[in-house]
Design a binder for these strands. Sequence first.
DNA 1: GCCGGTACTGTGCACGATCACAGAAACCGG
DNA 2: CCGGTTTCTGTGATCGTGCACAGTACCGGC
Lengths: 342, 342
Amino acid sequence: MTTSANGRRRPPTIHDVAREAGVSRGTVSRFLNGGHYVSPAARRSVEAAIRKTGYVVNRHARSLSTGRSDSVAFLLTEPQEKFFEDPNFNVLLRGCTEHLARHDIPLLLMLAATDDDRRRLTRYITSGHVDGVLLVSSHSGDPVAAELRAAGMPLVACGKPMGLGSKVSYVAADDRDGAREMVRHLLDAGRRRIGMITGPLDTPGGTDRLAGYREVLAEAGLPYDPALVAEGDYRRAGGEEAARRLLSRAPDLDAVFVASDLMAQGVVNALHQLGRSVPDDIAVGGFDDSAAATAVTPALTTMRQPYDRISAEMVRMLLAQIAGEDTAGVILPTELVVRDSA
Amino acid sequence: MTTSANGRRRPPTIHDVAREAGVSRGTVSRFLNGGHYVSPAARRSVEAAIRKTGYVVNRHARSLSTGRSDSVAFLLTEPQEKFFEDPNFNVLLRGCTEHLARHDIPLLLMLAATDDDRRRLTRYITSGHVDGVLLVSSHSGDPVAAELRAAGMPLVACGKPMGLGSKVSYVAADDRDGAREMVRHLLDAGRRRIGMITGPLDTPGGTDRLAGYREVLAEAGLPYDPALVAEGDYRRAGGEEAARRLLSRAPDLDAVFVASDLMAQGVVNALHQLGRSVPDDIAVGGFDDSAAATAVTPALTTMRQPYDRISAEMVRMLLAQIAGEDTAGVILPTELVVRDSA
DNA sequence: GCCGGTACTGTGCACGATCACAGAAACCGG
DNA sequence: CCGGTTTCTGTGATCGTGCACAGTACCGGC
């Protein structure tokens, strides 16, 4: 006698509830979906029957019938470590979860580190399990995006996609303008030998911030010196390493614009170890205004990326696409946050 | 004229493929599921038809028919930041993903930070969208676990559950024995004033490691001094802070056993700032053997948790449960890794 | 008493797959 | 050429829902 009181394993169906409540399946179904056109008496007995049977709706059957799944994927097409380390990513993820929660839509995080994962998850997504996809990928010429769009899947990317022809909706911060403002801030503070540690230069975010840096230097009549620029990878350790490279090439730097706070944290550590004081010897400007900005001493002057607005906008656009509307790209402004490092 | 060549939006069904290939639905279905009893000629024309129509199986229909969903949830019932920071969590997650991939099963990561999220996701899970759940939660008297088990959902927890009556299968490292081995190692090195920074003491992992520490001290005839013990939260910053507390109370410590490498990293930083050298003044023993162990100088002596085996075991047990078998708890041994810090 | 309208209820079909089953075709040994 | 097995194929029935639709009951107004 191992099985419990109910010998059957089959979960209760809407039919069981209907029988228990003494009404028809249709009435139960109406009750479940808003409850319009259900008499108070029927409503009460259905409620009781649901409690008694422990009924939960079978989402496969519902989805098959309606064509919707009422869930959304958050797809990460790169190794998760890189993003999990970044406080901003957590803010973005949390924001998307919360905004979707208002519509009672669960968010499924899918991690695709390998090509094999990508294939498996692409198939999973296109086979109807989600209504739409929020995509995060720094190398955003991502074939996955094109593939999902081709399958007619609603999709919004975080960050400007690389290929312009792909017609992928996106939400991004204004990288170029943000970089301009930060470099101008450094110039206004009297700095003249300003270096930069960029993000990966095969991504739009990486190149746009570099472009802003170069523009402002040119406008100020300062020469562009490639020796003052080092490429980083948005990670803490990468920033530390890039700072060492940069200072060995150009010991006379008086400021560095670093394309992410996480890297800037590494930069500040490296400068301390090299005996340079921040900001007296060298000013450091970050980017993101992530938790890393205030976790370091001195606290970072940085460009705030409006991650709360970005997640809100991504969700809004995705729901619009799911509802059948077309959406385009959105670029949101950044904001200078002056603290102690510059 | 905004729509593309095919005016309809309806994705192709198995029926469309069958018609295109000149065979019946049954034959296409057999082809899709292993391909037994399908003649070579039929096979070829079905393959061609699938390519031509761009057919992908509708998983809702399949799941409705089979009762399976061929996907698994990885449920995190606490704020993600805490776990995402931990390199071990990434190893565990990656391991589960890979082991499931061998069975072609996608893993869906579900984050439940709030009670609201927990309700939503519990409903989502019990309504049939996944075949089983891998649960990670440090406060593992988790009501979610009990609820899912009550609904008959296969479930394996990472870490020993708090309530013994809950009958939840789990996989855990041998915390008590690991702690014993580390403290014995510190004693063997001649240390006598050994402090400890624990994990949260409302979790089994936290109390078991503390128990091991106390046992070995007692066996060595050393007194247990509560002033030498501080409670931490497994996070880097928490370790740093706990170390300061500990040293202000007991400046004559000659060793600390820290219940996680991430905290130990913070401890080493704090000790450096306080002018103590590691391991000469104070030896530091960690726990986990995570990436943090080698990211710090000196590299940490630590207890390795076999995360690759843990993930393998969790997946194996979950699949067994899905197949209808019963599984119990599994405790895996840890291993002392001697490096420079102790 | 008939009318139109509103509130409510039940029936049957559709969704897109799997699966059991029956029957056809092919093969094979005697 | 027969009976028996194996291989292959198509035809319903089925899974649990939502939804369109038909139908009932009640109500107020002329």
